[in-house]
Amino acid sequence: MAEVEDALASAAELRFQQRLGTHVRLRSFTGMARYSFKIEDGEEFSDSEELPDDEAAWYQALRTVRDIESTLRSTGGAWSLVVVREGDPLYRIDVRAQKLS
């Protein structure tokens, strides 16, 4: 649980620094990587941010999944989220809803 809280705190601090415009200066000292979050549901959407490590990117992906899952309809639907670190795919989360009767 402490690891989750640390990852969330790191991601929150990074977002705060990005809003202040200090993330560029910090990157050279911390070695943060750029992560892209590519979402596809028939259309493609992509967003990216600098995060401290793969674990922080995973937790950001989980938060994104929670936000997106509310868009699924009871009649069905599907989408996927791919986390990419500086060009290399790391994680893929697929969600599919299907009405069975």
Rank of each mutant, 00 (worst) to 15 (best):
E50Q: 08
D54L: 07
E40M: 06
E3Y: 02
A2T: 10
V83W: 04
G21N: 08
K99E: 15
V95T: 05
Q17A: 13
V65N: 12
A7M: 10
V82K: 04
I39P: 01
K99N: 14
A97M: 07
V24D: 15
E44Q: 10
G76D: 07
E69D: 13
Y91V: 09
T71N: 09
R92H: 01
S101E: 15
Y91I: 11
W58T: 03
D6N: 10
L14A: 14
L14Q: 12
V83Y: 07
A12T: 11
P89Y: 02
D47C: 07
I39M: 11
W79K: 03
A7V: 03
V84K: 01
E69N: 11
D53W: 02
V82R: 02
F45Y: 10
R15G: 10
R85K: 15
Y59D: 05
R19M: 13
E13H: 02
A7H: 02
E40V: 04
S36L: 08
E44L: 11
H23P: 11
S80F: 00
T64A: 13
S10D: 15
R66C: 09
Y35L: 07
D54F: 00
R25Q: 13
R19N: 14
G76L: 01
F16L: 14
R92N: 10
F37K: 00
L8F: 05
L14N: 10
E43F: 03
D47G: 09
G87L: 04
F29R: 12
A61G: 06
D94F: 00
A97K: 01
R63D: 14
R34P: 05
E49F: 00
R25H: 13
W58K: 09
E86A: 06
A12F: 07
D47M: 08
R73F: 01
E55C: 00
S101Y: 02
V24H: 09
M32L: 11
P89E: 09
I93P: 05
L51F: 03
E50A: 11
T71G: 04
S70H: 07
V82G: 01
S74P: 10
R19K: 14
S48D: 13
L72W: 00
V82H: 00
E49I: 11
E69H: 02
M32T: 05
A2P: 04
R96Q: 14
R19A: 14
A78C: 05
A33I: 00
R19E: 15
Y59R: 06
V4M: 13
L62E: 13
T75V: 08
T64C: 08
F37S: 05
D6K: 09
L100C: 03
L14D: 06
Y35H: 04
V65T: 05
Q98Y: 03
G77P: 03
D41P: 02
Y91N: 06
E40L: 01
F16C: 08
T64E: 15
A11V: 09
S74Q: 10
V65A: 12
T75D: 15
A11I: 09
E3H: 07
R27E: 15
L72T: 03
S48W: 09
A61F: 03
L81V: 04
A7F: 03
F29Q: 14
R66A: 13
M32Q: 15
